[in-house]
């Protein structure tokens, strides 16, 4: 395993001195990523995807749990000790243009990792090599970020991430804000590099269709916990957690004749300050029963883990739903 995460928790303090408490952004998650594997984290805004990714990369202090990277515990590393780690674990941030320094040329952006880590290299040659790896011609080297389109900026971000041959790339919403015609390009590029360089990848996205095509395994997050984990294909074939099923059915497809077999979720996402009792999804779950309101389900299974008292059978339809005020 290139990365193992066990019972990871990230908490944020809230409130003033006298009424201080904490909310759990990530509330105890465990997963492994094997070398060369692509693992996707899926969930809606506020589910803790980005916090989890930042915690794995030690950009966010954790409050409990263990992170093992390439056989070594890394969760205790602080300050300068984290530097060698960042050579091995590269991060691609959400905003493709915003994550590039506006005052640096592309050449300097993609070779900055060499300077930061004091790696001796012919920087000019390296810039050309990296740009050609991501499919950009040499004349891009002299451009500034504002002269790039979203897709090109994303490619530069990829080039910088792979500069020092990392073992793991963490990509936070690699296709957000890109047009569909460009989105495919970026995903194809990541796939190709993964095969060629044997990279492992942790992809964070809210776009399920993207996950289907790139990820080997995936985890669905809700309020900072994994509700379902497993092989991507298996989850798409038969989602077992009601939230996964609802998410899969919520993605409108470009086909006007497609039967709208939709599981609509009532109500809004609960606040992390007032987590629901029992199963935290019960406030929105069409299948919720009395037990779900009181007893929190433990994740069951090994390869495929489902945190639900009543996992769905394939093709299950929600029971006739009484309209409650959302």
């Amino acid at each position: 395993m290139i990365l193992s995460v066990r019972d990871l928790q990230v908490s944020f303090p809230v409130g003033r001195l006298m009424s201080r408490s904490a909310i759990l952004g990530v509330a105890g998650v465990s997963f492994d990523i094997a070398a060369g594997e692509t693992f996707a984290l899926v969930g809606e805004s506020g589910s803790g995807k980005t916090t989890l990714a930042r915690a794995v990369n030690l950009l966010q202090p954790i409050s409990a749990g263990e992170i093992t990277f390439d056989g070594k515990r890394i969760d205790g590393l602080r300050g300068a000790d984290t530097k060698p780690l960042r050579r091995e674990m590269a991060m691609m941030f959400q905003d493709p243009v915003g994550s590039l320094s506006p005052r640096m040329q592309v050449r300097d952006i993609v070779t900055e990792p060499f300077r930061v880590h004091g790696v001796e290299a012919d920087l000019r040659a390296e810039a050309d090599r990296l740009l050609s790896l991501v499919g950009l011609s040499g004349d891009f080297a002299n451009r500034f970020p504002h002269q790039l389109s979203g897709g090109q900026a994303r490619r530069v971000g990829v080039a910088r991430a792979i500069a020092l041959n990392p073992k793991l790339i963490i990509a936070d919403e690699p296709t957000a804000g890109l047009d569909v015609s460009v989105q495919g390009e970026v995903l194809n590029l990541l796939n190709e590099l993964r095969e060629r360089l044997g990279l492992a990848m942790l992809i964070i996205t809210h776009n399920l269709h993207v996950v289907h095509h790139v990820a080997d395994r995936m985890a669905v997050m809700y309020l900072g916990r994994f509700v379902e984990t497993g092989e991507t294909e298996a989850i798409f074939q038969a989602p077992a957690h009601p939230y996964t099923a609802a998410l899969l059915s919520a993605n409108p497809e470009p086909d006007p004749d497609k039967a709208k077999d939709r599981i609509s979720l009532p109500a809004e996402v609960p606040s992390l300050l007032a987590r629901p009792t029992g199963c935290e999804f019960h406030t929105r779950c069409p299948w919720a029963q009395a037990r779900c309101r009181t007893e929190a389900p433990a994740a069951q299974g090994t390869d495929r883990r489902i945190a639900c008292h009543f996992p769905l059978s394939p093709g299950a339809r929600p029971p006739a739903f009484k309209e409650t005020a959302p």
Binding site: V182, N188, H209, D255
Partner: peptide
């Protein structure tokens, strides 16, 4: 046609190579 092809939701089977529209 190309735009519709590019939408990953239109790919019924899983593919590692998604269609794109080259050029700008």
């Amino acid at each position: 046609e190309r735009l519709l092809d590019c939408d990953p939701a239109r790919q019924s089977s899983r593919t590692r190579h998604l269609p794109t529209i080259p050029g700008e």
